[in-house]
Design a protein around this nucleic acid. Sequence first.
DNA 1: ACGTGCTTGTGAAAGTGCGCACAAAGTGGG
DNA 2: CCCACTTTGTGCGCACTTTCACAAGCACGT
Lengths: 214, 214
Amino acid sequence: MARLPVYLRALQALQDRGTLTISSEALASAAGVNSAKLRKDLSHLGSYGTRGVGYEVEYLVYQISRELGLTQDWAVAIVGIGNLGRALANYGGFGTRGFRIAALLDADPAMVGQNVASLDVRHIDSLEEVVRTKGVSIGVITTPAAAAQGVATRFVEAGVASILNFAPVVLNVPDGVDVRKVDLSIELQILAFHAQRRADGDGRGAERAGLELM
Amino acid sequence: MARLPVYLRALQALQDRGTLTISSEALASAAGVNSAKLRKDLSHLGSYGTRGVGYEVEYLVYQISRELGLTQDWAVAIVGIGNLGRALANYGGFGTRGFRIAALLDADPAMVGQNVASLDVRHIDSLEEVVRTKGVSIGVITTPAAAAQGVATRFVEAGVASILNFAPVVLNVPDGVDVRKVDLSIELQILAFHAQRRADGDGRGAERAGLELM
DNA sequence: ACGTGCTTGTGAAAGTGCGCACAAAGTGGG
DNA sequence: CCCACTTTGTGCGCACTTTCACAAGCACGT
């Protein structure tokens, strides 16, 4: 399920606060979901809560981490060391959660050899070698749109079956390869869409309010 | 619909290539969706295709832009000028799509006054004033998790009803306020989850293959 | 030992989204 | 003018998700 990471984060926050046990109701509210949904999700992964009490926070953290595969560590390669690539490389939140930035790659010769986040940027041509020697299993693409498909194909051919794509294009990959897309412009556009609907709705709302008075 | 921005991008790429008209089948494949779904989405916004021909690219671009509210421009404020905030401020892709970065805010006095992406970073205390004077209607939060809720509340009280949150917390906001969340760790965790299932599945797949032979 | 009060786990209902498949509609050739 | 071909718009069934509601189970006080 795509909701497990959200639960995990809420649980870790609770753990930091010293909470030992939590009810589905409270956890659901912290994670922003319905409590029945949360219980079904947890029961689905064979979890054990205690009726009348709730779930033991520590045990649940461990179970979810295991289910998500966070007990092993994953080597990540970032291709495209522009603003966003650099920001990701410097973001500390990954290391503590089982993800290790193993390599930074870029096509620009001027960028190659620079030291970013304690790693030397290497040239894109060594992608295959880096994937092999560092055991990379997750690829992150932060290149311009035009370069993204080529990088994705090389990742796939090198054996990387999990790709996180920040470039604004739809990647074409074979079955069995998992691509997730994060597109900042699209997020803003969706917000704008709802904002406009809200604005339109206000107008219509006033009319409706008027009608309701009759 | 959350898919309109994807269609729009595919259409703009087609427009750049000089394509005048396109069938639902071709556009659907470019956007990575089913053609019936695409037609239903487009018909839902009252769009006009021509049977036997397809859709006129330019007209469709205009219609979708209008529906998304991209014909007006939206002032965006970014709070939290760390790695990610800086990367977003410097990302050029927004301006061309109706979004204008109107202000950068940070709580760190050492950061205030610095020039980032041709804007002076201002102190978070002037949030309300900035929202008012610059007409900010979309807020972007790239602060640490602990600060995010406070910033969100101030945005809402200042009248900003659209928030894009990069901090790894669930924001609590009143009804009517629209929050979208982008969480990079969660994306990686979901990839890891599928990668692990793939790995487990390979093992089980072999066993199943064995059973199927009996 | 027993009843009371919570909380989990889950069956069943309601809701949502997706995609097939086909009728309606337009184009172009003869 | 008519016919064959292409492509849109959409009714319908299917599968999946979400939510409600409640029985089963556990802890704790008496």
